[in-house]
Simulated assay, not measured.
Amino acid sequence: MGIHEDELDYRVPALQRGLSILQMFNASERSLSSNAIAERLGVSVSAIYRILVTLTDMGYLRKLGKNSYELGPQVLCDGFAYLASRDLVDIAMPHLNALRDRTSLSCHLSIREQTDSLYIGRAFAAQRLSVNIPIGTRIPCHCTAMGRMLLSGLTPMELDKLYQHVRLDDYPPPAPKTLPELQQLLERDRERGWVMHRSDYSTAIACAVRDHRGDVVAAINLSGPEAVMDSPIARERYRESLQQCADAISLELGGKSS
């Protein structure tokens, strides 16, 4: 929507110039001199001096040498704060729905709450024997593929602290029975980048979702009947599709693809 002519008088030229300056920086032009900035705006250096000082003082610009600038840390902080404020479910669900449509398998999204994997989203495949875990379900992390991916983001020290008062020997196989056994499992999970978990009737494959810091903030899975997932070729195809989906969600959260 354009600006009406009678609204032009309400614009703030200094603010407009300040924002225009920030928009000049990009991947190919990471730093600019004050002369170059002034030239692009069609003004003198003295006309933008106070704007440059203000942007630098607020952290939106960082001064390099005498008359050169680059984007400051505040730009990144503000940008990532916006990304983090977007609801994870809103970001992930279009990707999970598309993955469900491509594979005809159910997809789930979970986050870690202490030692539990909390299911916060699902894309249900409407076929016989589909795996359908309700939103709000909590399952101990060490017992599921998604849970193990959530734990894989922790350091050994963080994991020790989290499980120091938790018994692991009350759960049926193939869940690990001791903390050292869980540590070994997670070490292999980190190297592999995904987890496959088989139960009596179904198989689930899980991958991690990461934010702009590279931290694991969620996990997603593909799960289906054992008969559908039995073929190694099929499982590899599903795993690749799942990883692509996790990468796409991570990118929207400001992260990088695996």
Rank of each mutant, 00 (worst) to 15 (best):
V53A: 11
R40S: 12
S28W: 03
F80I: 01
S44E: 13
G72I: 14
I91R: 03
L76I: 02
S106Q: 13
L64A: 03
L109P: 08
L83M: 12
P73M: 11
R50H: 05
S104N: 07
C77L: 06
L83H: 09
G79Q: 05
M93F: 11
M93W: 07
I51Q: 08
S33C: 04
A38F: 10
R62N: 06
R50F: 04
S104P: 05
V53S: 05
R112Q: 13
H95W: 07
R100P: 11
I91Y: 08
S104F: 01
T103L: 01
T56F: 05
L71Q: 04
I51A: 09
Y82R: 07
E29R: 15
Y49P: 11
S110L: 04
D101M: 08
L32N: 07
L52G: 10
K63N: 10
D90A: 13
R86H: 08
D90N: 14
H95Y: 12
D101W: 02
S68Y: 03
Y60I: 12
A84T: 06
L52E: 03
V75S: 00
H108D: 13
V53R: 01
S34V: 01
R62M: 08
L88K: 13
A92R: 08
C107S: 09
Y69A: 04
S68V: 04
D87F: 01
M58H: 11
N97M: 00
D87Q: 04
Y82L: 06
